[in-house]
Amino acid sequence: MNAPDDARVRGCGHAGTVEIPIFPLGAVLLPGESLSLQIFEPRYVALVRDCTDGRREPEFGVVLIARGHEVGGGEVRTEVGTVARITEVIELPDSRYRLRCKGTERLRIEKWLDDAPYPRAEAELWPDGPGTDDAASLAGLRERADRLHTLTAQFARRNGIRRPPPSASLDDLPADPTARSYELAARLPIGPTDRQAALSAPDSSSRLTALTTAVDDAIAMMEFRLL
Rank of each mutant, 00 (worst) to 15 (best):
G131S: 14
L148E: 07
R157Y: 12
C101I: 06
A210E: 04
S169W: 06
A46K: 15
A220I: 04
R8Q: 12
P130T: 08
M1Q: 14
R100Y: 00
G140V: 07
R49E: 15
L211N: 03
L30T: 00
Q38C: 10
D128N: 01
P4G: 09
R55H: 06
V28Q: 01
H69P: 00
P31A: 08
L125C: 12
L64M: 11
L226Y: 10
L173H: 04
I219M: 13
E143H: 12
T193G: 10
G131W: 04
I22Q: 00
T152W: 04
G81Y: 02
L37Y: 02
R187K: 06
D133G: 07
L37R: 03
E70V: 03
P117M: 13
V83S: 00
A168M: 09
A136R: 13
V76F: 09
P165M: 04
R106E: 01
R120L: 06
A210Q: 04
A139F: 09
R120C: 07
L208S: 03
I90G: 03
P189L: 08
L29V: 05
R162H: 03
G32M: 01
D94L: 10
T52W: 07
I219T: 13
F224Y: 15
S34C: 02
R56P: 05
L184D: 02
L184K: 03
T52N: 09
T132F: 13
E88A: 15
A46I: 10
L99R: 00
I219S: 08
S181E: 02
G160E: 07
F60T: 05
S206R: 11
L25R: 05
L25F: 05
N2R: 14
D128I: 05
E70Q: 09
E57L: 06
R163A: 03
S205N: 07
D194F: 01
N159G: 00
R144L: 15
L92Q: 14
D133Y: 10
D171H: 10
A27Q: 00
A116F: 14
G129W: 07
D94P: 00
T209E: 11
V83R: 00
R180M: 15
W112R: 13
G13I: 05
V76C: 10
L47K: 01
G61M: 09
V76N: 08
E33T: 08
H69K: 14
I39W: 05
M1F: 15
P192I: 02
I39D: 01
V80Y: 05
R147L: 15
L151E: 08
L211D: 01
R180N: 07
S169C: 11
L173D: 06
S167D: 05
A139M: 11
E33Y: 02
L30P: 02
S137V: 04
G32E: 00
G68V: 06
E19V: 12
T78H: 13
